[in-house]
């Protein structure tokens, strides 16, 4: 009896750590587009970057429950860091990526202490404020950032000294996709770990989390810092692959859009950001082709409808659908031998 339960317990816990067929397909298709949709690489590159940005927001909103309206602060900082480095002659993309991640993580770490306290509204205002302050700095420090004209003269070297960026965006897309995939694997690993479980518990009920002995603040600081680093990398990817940075990367609509993207795809299961990015970009493409100037109206309408229809319910449905596809693992978990339990 009790060994049965033990097997069940292990299987249930470990199952979440295993990749489903749907997930593998998702990434295979993504990789396949590198060969099959060459004329779309520019927009695909954009999608991947937005997806990574939304993924980083999911880490703090979906897994730690922090409402942020200023996530663009980290995205923008990453973009400027990578852009400025490249302009000033440090052309190696990976170096720029690392620097952007560190800069954004530092900002995330420092500002995380500001969002530990207060209501949702206070958090919202503080995050928004941080992004605005950064936007002002970028605007004023035009000697460094190019101000309102944008940061020009970014010249990227080849990735790993091997792959030159091309005008069709193929290298760019491959690069962004690879980076995003690696970061995704890491995030996925984190959310099924005990640490990830503790984050979910904090989102659900911080008071109880403390009563279980979880150092709530430390966990939140850690995840906020991590999410900031992710957002910074997304920004750096944008700067490197488009070779241009403007004040737009720090604008309010960036923060609002990324939240919208995440909400479209669904909060709290990591794929939401990526799926949302695809839907968002396709929508944007379709609507702007039809009514170029006013696509914002329709995006707003979609947002209103999503909320009125019950966001949680929709997300739950998407998740169930997703589990139907992705949850099907190669073998049913019960029949798996014990050693395959992804022990590291």
């Amino acid at each position: 009896m009790s060994t049965n339960i033990a097997d069940h317990v292990r299987a249930t816990l470990v199952r979440r750590g295993r990749w489903g067929i749907g997930e593998i397909l998702f990434w295979l298709i993504a990789a396949a587009t590198l060969y099959f949709l060459p004329e779309r690489h520019l927009i695909l590159n954009e999608i991947v970057i937005i997806g990574l940005f939304a993924l980083s927001l999911d880490l703090i909103l979906g897994y730690a429950g922090i409402v942020s309206l200023g996530h663009a602060a980290f995205f923008g900082l990453g973009a400027y860091t990578a852009g400025i480095l490249a302009r000033d002659g440090i052309a190696d993309p990976l170096l720029g990526l690392g620097a952007a991640a560190i800069a954004a993580a530092l900002l995330g770490f420092v500002t995380s202490f500001l969002v530990l306290r207060g209501s949702d509204l206070t958090k919202l205002m503080v995050t928004l404020g941080v992004a605005l302050v950064l936007g002002e700095i970028a605007n004023q420090a035009s000697w460094l950032t190019g101000g309102a004209d944008g940061l020009q003269g970014i010249a990227m070297g080849p990735i790993l000294g091997l792959f030159e960026f091309d005008i069709f965006g193929t290298t760019a897309y491959g690069y962004s996709l690879t980076v995003t995939f690696l970061l995704f694997i890491l995030a996925r690993r984190i959310v099924v770990s005990p640490y990830g479980l503790s984050l979910r518990s904090i989102r659900d009920n911080p008071l109880k989390a403390r009563a279980v002995g979880i150092p709530v603040n430390r966990r939140l600081v850690a995840v906020y810092t991590l999410a900031a680093a992710y957002a910074g990398i997304a920004g750096a990817l944008l700067a490197q692959t488009t070779q241009f940075v403007s004040l737009d990367v720090l604008a309010f609509h960036r923060s609002a859009d990324v939240m919208l993207v995440l909400v479209i795809g669904g909060v709290g299961y990591l794929y939401g950001g990526l799926i949302g990015a695809i839907v968002f970009k396709v929508l944007q493409d379709v609507i702007s082709a039809w009514t170029p100037q006013y696509w914002q109206f329709w995006i707003g309408l979609i947002l209103v409808i999503i909320v009125l229809a019950g966001r949680e319910r929709l997300t739950e449905r998407v998740r169930v659908l997703w589990k139907g596809v992705a949850g099907r693992t190669a073998k049913s978990p019960e029949t798996l031998p014990k050693t395959s339990a992804r022990e590291v």
Binding site: M259, V263, W295, F297, R311
Partner: peptide, 14 residues
């Protein structure tokens, strides 16, 4: 927040 941002977007575009 999402709902009212949606409204803002609609108002701006309209």
């Amino acid at each position: 927040v999402l709902f009212s941002i949606g409204l803002v977007f609609m108002a701006v575009a309209a």
